[in-house]
Write a protein that binds this DNA or RNA. Structure first.
Length: 750
DNA sequence: CTAGAAATAAACACGT
DNA sequence: AACGTGTTTATTTCTA
């Protein structure tokens, strides 16, 4: 955009005078250098990656014979899969080109990864013990009634710490699960036992997402690969990624791929196997739950190990009678059939190779994320004086005992070490780290850079924001998504109008000043912590433009309110306007509340491990069967290439019409909900809102939460980068400040 | 191909 | 003069 902006500026400003231009122009110019640099970097990375792909067999079209020559028979696939996290595309390319990876190297990598896993397990155990200890202590203290309040306080603090830690662990668990999945995938592809090379990136190393392909890129890749040939899309992909700037990557990994696994594993057929406990755990959970989860995890682990062992009859690419090859899902009666299928359909050809490559990217991204989370955990533990961290050595050592005692003595004081909490240098990785992949569905949409348009499409998919800390949307249970947007630098898939309305509705008195609206945006979405000039202008623009926003003069100035009537009117227009949508409505409506309820439930359950990744949910996960209902549009949910980033192609970039429900994935949160809700209101959920069946309900959805805690900022160490750089926001709220770190300050607006 | 929606930019006007 | 608010207009991008 900056480009556009520049041009525009030059032309218009020349005559119009620069009076106004100052403010905006100033902002831009100040960041240009940095931004440009970043941009360049990103572009380079992306290009390299792209080249890589193009050069490879995958895109045989473009790569003539020379390529074929180079391509040794079996090598490509294996190499591609094994190549470690070589983070830089260049490196990757090297590897790919050389196609060399000595067995020793592989071995080393594998071992490394295993070590990591082990460590994680230890951590788990460690945590368990810690919990037990805590419990014990509590009991002890309870008996001697004389325990002073002081102790209680300490206990509380301790508990609080534990909670945090617990959450972190949960995250780790999730990551582990992801890793397991990845490993399985890798194994399948590699047909090699043992975990793959997970080079746990070191904290510092955490190459910004740039290293890997951006989600958009990945999606594109899948599209190209699965689709048989890249079409025009490629342009889009490129463009987007460029504009997005690798930074976009932060947004995330697109785990859509995992869907494949997850999906399959959680298939109905898979009942037998303990479904991975995906649930959003974002919130603190009871120890009980944790234990349960632990157990499940263990079982999962066992299952996996057994898989390894029996390698004979099993195949990582085969499960529950279905081929797990990304995007496949072909049903195979038996193993033999599967093998046949595998050999026929997924033989070593351009396509398969390309798919492998893509998978590799996905894995890479996940690993990066994992390492980030791990680092964060370590930092946290270090802070809490449970040193297991740094040295990956044995976790159990320091038990809580030490930690507990410590805390007892020094309640909140964290003396020696880092007084810094999570938000420390090391720890605070990217926001994405916290919960990346989410939006695969949104996919393209998320990537910051995606141009303006995308979000609106995403809108249709209606993501759920749900509530979290301050704002409580209609579906509190979907919190994960909310959390996601709050921490991840991902563009929310809602239109400005929707968001503004949500902001206002969220307020106690249904009215907000412009500044408060701004605050809500920054507080609620990491994405809006940067480029303030841009989105704030958009907000103002929307406020003025839409009749549904009414300005009310106030003593202290003016506040904005929502004319629900207008809002609904607009919505319904949109909806009615789109035949396709109307078509779909019936089905969804048919389910009425029930549907919503189930949706919610499904959502809650489906919220994947990945931190409630809507995308995942969307994909296949059973529960979401609803998708079908909602999205009548095949292109979106579509059966999309099963599980892959699946359906991504259409879903992500392709869009859907503005008011349509389309692929609306399961998630819905009020905003989303409203998005297409104009007419669906009655559908509404919680019973709260939607009073009656009249679409034009003036009543705003009910908020479950009455008071916003601003605190939440604390719990989310995100990175929001830019904030720091771009001054404007600083004053907004300290919220913003936390960010920094991570990503570069690039602006998506360029 | 067109219309409409949404996002962006930017020019202006006003008030503090 | 510098900002923050509000309004408008123009462009661009996309989809039905």
């Amino acid at each position: 955009m900056s480009q556009n902006g520049l041009s525009a500026l030059s032309s218009s400003q020349l005559e119009a005078g620069s009076r106004d231009g100052r403010s905006s122009a100033g902002d831009t110019s100040s960041e240009v250098s940095t931004v440009e640099l970043l941009h360049l970097q990103q572009q380079q990375a992306l290009q390299a990656a792209r080249q890589l792909l193009l050069q490879q067999p995958g895109s045989g079209l473009k790569s003539p014979k020379s390529q074929d020559k180079q391509r040794p028979l079996q090598v490509p696939v294996s190499v591609a899969m094994m190549s470690p996290q070589v983070i830089t595309p260049q490196q990757m390319q090297q590897i790919l080109q050389q196609q060399v990876l000595s067995p020793q190297q592989l071995q080393a990598l594998l071992q490394q990864q295993q070590a990591v896993m082990l460590q994680q397990q230890h951590l788990q155990e460690f945590y368990k013990k810690q919990q037990e200890q805590l419990h014990l202590q509590l009991l002890q203290q309870q008996h001697p009634g004389k325990q002073a309040k002081e102790q209680q306080q300490q206990q509380q603090q301790l508990a609080a710490q534990q909670l945090v830690f617990q959450q972190q662990l949960l995250q780790m668990q999730q990551l582990q699960q992801q890793q397991h999945l990845l490993n399985m995938q890798r194994q399948g592809l590699l047909s090699l036992p043992g975990p793959a090379p997970g080079q746990a990136a070191l904290p510092g190393q955490a190459l910004p997402p740039q290293g890997g392909l951006s989600p958009a890129e990945l999606q594109q890749l899948w599209k190209d690969v699965t689709g048989g040939g890249g079409h025009g899309m490629e342009d889009n992909g490129i463009k987007h990624s460029n504009s997005t700037g690798g930074g976009g990557a932060p947004g995330g990994l697109d785990l859509s791929t995992n869907n494949t696994n997850t999906t399959t594993s959680s298939n109905p057929a898979a009942k037998a196997s303990p479904p991975i406990p995906h649930h959003a755990l974002a919130n603190g959970q009871s120890p009980v739950l944790n234990h349960r989860r632990e157990r499940e995890r263990e079982r999962e682990r066992e299952r996996e190990s057994s898989l390894h062992e029996e390698n004979g009859g099993t195949h990582s690419l085969y499960g529950h009678g279905v081929c797990k090859w990304p995007g496949c899902e072909n049903i195979c009666e038996d193993f033999g059939q599967f093998l046949k299928h595998l050999n026929n359909e997924h033989a070593l050809d351009d396509r398969s190779t390309a798919q492998c490559r893509v998978q590799m990217q996905v894995v890479q991204q996940l690993e990066i994320q994992l390492s980030k989370e791990r680092d964060r955990l370590q930092a946290m533990m270090a802070h809490l004086h449970m040193r297991p961290s740094e040295p990956k050595s044995s976790p159990k050592p320091l038990n809580l005992v030490s930690s507990v005692t410590m805390s007892k003595n020094l309640p909140s004081a964290s003396p020696p070490n880092l007084p810094q909490t999570p938000t420390t240098p090391t720890a605070p990785i990217t926001p994405m780290a916290a919960m990346p992949q989410v939006p695969s569905v949104l996919g393209g949409a998320n990537v910051p850079s995606m141009g303006a348009m995308r979000r609106r499409h995403a809108d249709k998919y209606s993501m759920s924001l749900s509530s979290g800390g301050d704002t409580v949307f209609i579906f509190p249970e979907i919190a994960p998504n909310y959390e996601f947007y709050k921490n991840a630098d991902v563009r929310p898939p809602f239109t400005y109008a929707t968001l503004i309305r949500q902001a206002i509705m969220d307020s106690a008195d249904m009215q907000l000043t412009l500044n408060e609206i701004y605050s809500w945006f920054t507080r609620t979405f990491a994405y809006f912590r940067r480029n303030a000039a841009t989105w704030k202008n958009a907000v103002r623009h929307n406020l003025s433009l839409h009749k549904c926003f009414v300005r009310v003069e106030n003593v202290k100035g003016a506040v904005w309110t929502v004319d629900e009537m207008e809002y609904q009117k607009r919505r319904s227009q949109k909806i009615t306007g789109s035949p396709s949508l109307v078509k779909n409505l019936p089905s969804s409506l048919g389910y009425g509340t029930a549907l919503n309820a189930s949706l919610q439930a499904a959502l809650a359950e489906t919220t994947l491990p990945l931190l409630g990744n809507p995308a995942l949910m969307n994909s296949s996960t059973g529960p979401m069967g609803c998708h079908g209902l909602l999205g009548g549009d095949p292109s979106v949910l579509a059966g999309s290439p099963p599980g892959l980033l699946g359906g991504s192609p259409p879903g992500m970039l392709g869009g859907s019409p503005p008011g349509t429900l389309r692929g609306s994935p399961p998630s819905l949160l009020q905003a989303a909900h409203d998005e297409y809700n104009g007419t669906l209101d009655h559908l509404d959920t919680n019973g709260h809102s939607s009073p009656g069946y009249s679409p034009s309900v003036h009543m705003p959805p009910i908020h479950v939460k009455e008071e916003p805690l601003n605190m939440d900022d604390e719990d989310c160490p995100m990175s929001l980068v830019t904030t720091a750089n771009h001054s404007p926001e600083l004053d907004e709220e300290r919220d913003l400040e936390e960010g920094n770190l991570s990503e570069e300050g690039r602006t998506w607006s360029d």
